[in-house]
């Protein structure tokens, strides 16, 4: 197998004495989807926020393509081609799709002003690929449906050549059809060689979409398993009991 895209080594982070993430190591390969499972407060979002730059880890090391990476803020993460798709947080509701897509990385004209025309043209192109039915280019994203909002967020990641994608419950607010759309997108991105961390509560979805699943409990890593080798019951047992299934425990 190829070299890992991301290696999280011995990551720890504490909030006022509470160890939110306790010496966790995890890796991610190109073209692979790794699901992160666990109860609320298990530490999966916190762990992943160290990678996306939203939190600073207290200890441990992050390697990207085998090289040490210093990630202290979201800008650093972006510089390493890490993009994050949050369930709710990531869009400015009052701005339109193209303003959101380019937020923080606006295209500018020769005068240094933002080039709305070019940004809208690019947005139309990428949305035409990801979600051809999308037409509301001038509406604030608050006027879009959950699926449309999610497709704007995914378009942002795809447009900027993400190599590592972090998805935090990308389908939590979506209807069945829209969930299917996101699932197809994930398969498509996988084929293009991206590595994806998928945080989810739904073990069925993880089994369907992911190659491997990492289960966390109380800030510690319970185990990493290949989803083909376990049942959903095994995964549930890991989440609830915090133990690896017996046939893999050896």
């Amino acid at each position: 197998m190829a070299a890992p895209l991301v290696e999280l080594k011995d990551i720890s982070i504490a909030f006022g004495g509470v160890k939110a993430v306790d010496h966790v190591s995890l890796d991610l390969y190109p073209g692979e989807v790794v699901g992160l499972l666990g109860h609320n407060g298990a530490g999966k979002s916190t762990l992943i926020k160290c990678l996306s730059g939203a939190y600073r880890k207290d200890a441990g090391e992050i390697l990207i393509n085998g090289k040490h990476a210093e990630i202290n803020n979201p800008r650093d993460a972006r510089a390493h081609n890490i993009e994050t798709i949050y369930q709710t947080l990531a869009l400015a509701d009052n701005l339109d799709a193209s303003a959101n897509l380019f937020l923080g990385r606006e295209l500018t004209t020769a005068f240094g002003t933002v080039d709305d025309g070019r940004m809208e043209a690019e947005t139309r192109k990428i949305m035409g690929r990801l979600n051809p039915n999308f037409q509301k280019f001038h509406a604030p994203v608050s006027a879009l449906s959950g699926g449309q909002r999610q497709s704007v967020a995914i378009a942002r990641a795809v447009y900027f050549n993400a190599k590592i994608l972090i998805m935090d419950e990308p389908t939590a607010a979506l209807g069945p059809q829209e969930t299917q759309m996101v699932a197809e997108l994930i398969q498509e991105l996988k084929r293009e060689g991206l590595g994806i961390f998928l945080i989810d509560h739904d073990v069925h979805q993880v089994k369907e979409l992911c190659d491997r699943a990492a289960v966390m409990k109380n800030g510690q890593l319970v185990g990493v398993v290949k989803v083909d080798e376990v049942s959903t019951d095994d995964l549930l047992a890991m989440i609830i009991a915090g133990k690896k299934p017996e046939h893999l425990a050896a």
Partner: peptide, 28 residues
Amino acid sequence: TVIAQRTRLGRYIFATGGNPDAAELSGI
């Protein structure tokens, strides 16, 4: 008006007003 509509500064002002967390996470 030019600042508000045509510069990154203005774009960031409105983005921050619409969703401070999103603005922060976008590297602003």
